[in-house]
Design a protein around this nucleic acid. Structure first.
Lengths: 168, 168
DNA sequence: TTGTCTCCCATGTGCGCCCATGCTATCCCT
DNA sequence: AGGGATAGCATGGGCGCACATGGGAGACAA
């Protein structure tokens, strides 16, 4: 089992809009199919599907899987275009420089509300980038949601329910 | 896996009706079967099948697949004729100049409502060209549609649902 | 001619590539 | 255990090239 994205880091956004991807995350990005030492490290940055002010980042393997799902839909289906618009138009293919950095475009920064600092938060098979304030708020909301959704308090119960829902 | 069309760019339409194809899109267009460095870059521009004011652009590989798809439909099916009409009559085979530009005919510009600026929007294996206003409207519609369609919260849920619908 | 499209050449700017710096944590040797 | 060397990492900055855009000259049609 490949390593996964775990942990939180806060990094600076420099004058050119560049951010360093946390080194442990780079290790994961390097673990994709076919990557070799020396190859440029690649990733895909996607605006949040729920229009929250944050960016979702995927490995190329992960995004290939999503692309394949979409490609499996009928070519002119409305769903296909709607999903592609979200997952492709609001996205960007990026390669890291030799220091493990990449540039966030002005639009991306604006939509994610990111200025001087960016929080990198691992989500197992992807990670997110938030402004420090946005991230605090998200964490609070998630905690609330978990409390509402489940009584009483067991995360594993939630996981089990989700499994039932999607895997039958 | 080849790179795919991702991201949004807004480029100018010059006095002669020319537009620059975003460089990352050119890279994808170059990735078609048999292309070599130095070869002219080719693409196919098609008027929208739903008669929206936009242009759909495909790689030559992709258009071949669509042609095959149409050929596989029953010869007298209405869908077949409708699709062929759009894809043949309202389509144009184009090669880029050495700066990565091509000329939009007056007719194309008129039908897509494009004047001073053109928005290029990636859709994984094709991309679209819109006027800035038209594109904003489309995105709003797509967002509305997604909101209606899915209960309550995850875009990927919608993706799974679409798969169920089409693939059983 | 006039208008339209195509092939070149020109230009400025922004982004990506590369080199540099300082910090920290780890390891190794004494 | 302590101290010094070292390697990995976050961050800064400079420079050059690729890219977006403008315009001129020629080709072809009306």
């Amino acid at each position: 089992m490949a390593q996964r994205f775990r942990g939180e880091w806060t990094h600076k956004v420099d004058a050119k809009g560049r951010v360093s991807v946390p080194a442990p995350f780079r290790r994961v990005l390097e673990s994709v199919q076919g990557w070799q030492s020396g190859d440029p490290v690649q990733l895909v940055v996607v605006l949040d599907q729920d229009e929250r002010p944050c960016l979702n980042v995927y490995t190329t393997d992960e995004i290939d899987q999503i692309d394949d799902l979409i490609a499996s839909l009928p070519r002119f289906a409305r769903e296909r275009e709607a999903l592609s618009t979200r997952l492709a138009s609001g996205a960007e293919h990026v390669t890291l420089d030799e220091n493990g950095r990449f540039g966030l475009t002005k639009e991306m920064r604006a939509k994610a509300g990111i200025e001087g600092q960016a929080v990198f938060a691992g989500l197992i098979d992807s990670f997110q980038i938030w402004s420090p304030e946005g991230y605090e708020e998200k964490k609070a909301r998630m905690a609330d949601w978990i409390k509402e959704e489940r009584d009483p308090n067991d995360l594993f119960e939630l996981l089990y329910a989700a499994q039932q829902k999607y895997l039958g």
